[in-house]
Amino acid sequence: MPTGFFTTVCIGCKVCEVACKQWNQLPDDGFTFTGMSYDNSVDLGASTWRHVEFVERPVPLSGQTGGNFSWLMLSDVCKHCQRAGCLENCPTGAIIRTEFDSVYVQPDVCNGCGYCVVGCPFGVIDRLESDGRAWKCTLCYDRQKDQMEPACAKACPTDSILFGEVAELRAKAGERLEQLHARGVKEAYLYGADAAGQPGTGGLNAFFLLVDRPEVYNLPPDPVAPAKYVKESWASLAMASAGLLLAAIGAVWSART
């Protein structure tokens, strides 16, 4: 049963962050003031599995009346990629794909090698210093086991975070996109909704409706799971290995008596 989220009408209330922290009993991020608009949790990490971004732009949204300013909010989360860089990199088999088609780190297996951290094109997963293991959003695996939707989706007051079958979510997202286009918000588009739109990840189980370039939301324009482009590196390794052997044979051969 594939499941996923999508985010459209976020109002930046951060209840998803709170619900996530409460359900998963995650520690707080420290009560610091960053000066980055209302964003004080800064990024996703080992103990921040939901992160609401606040983008302040000195330009209006299409169809917006009055004001040379627009505010974009996005509740960021692990995307549970179809081709997950973290999972492909994990050497211990700690990271698995669950029966709900989500990507899950098994804490009893993870040995904290840190390779998933650099495998994620979105900077989601991180190693917790105090604990030595890698952590990220579980898509509320425990709640899903009990046929409940994830805590963030449950708590979201505007239904900006929707949860359900990915195919249904895609259809809903398509409808929403048409509505927005009809209303004059021509810049709206879907990010990572399917493999055709984002071949590098094979599509995201948590995809987004955006109204500006992905970089504005700190999302890479073309995320790719590393194993997709590393083939060139293996070819280079073969050449380097051959070179090493030839140099060794050459040195021994040329110094024969």
Partner: peptide
């Protein structure tokens, strides 16, 4: 209104210049 643009104009905007990956 004197907003601080979180996505400064330029060839590639960023989110408050925060790292995009870990």
């Amino acid at each position: 209104i004197q907003p601080v643009p979180s996505a400064p104009p330029g060839p590639v905007p960023t989110y408050y210049d925060k790292p995009a990956i870990k």
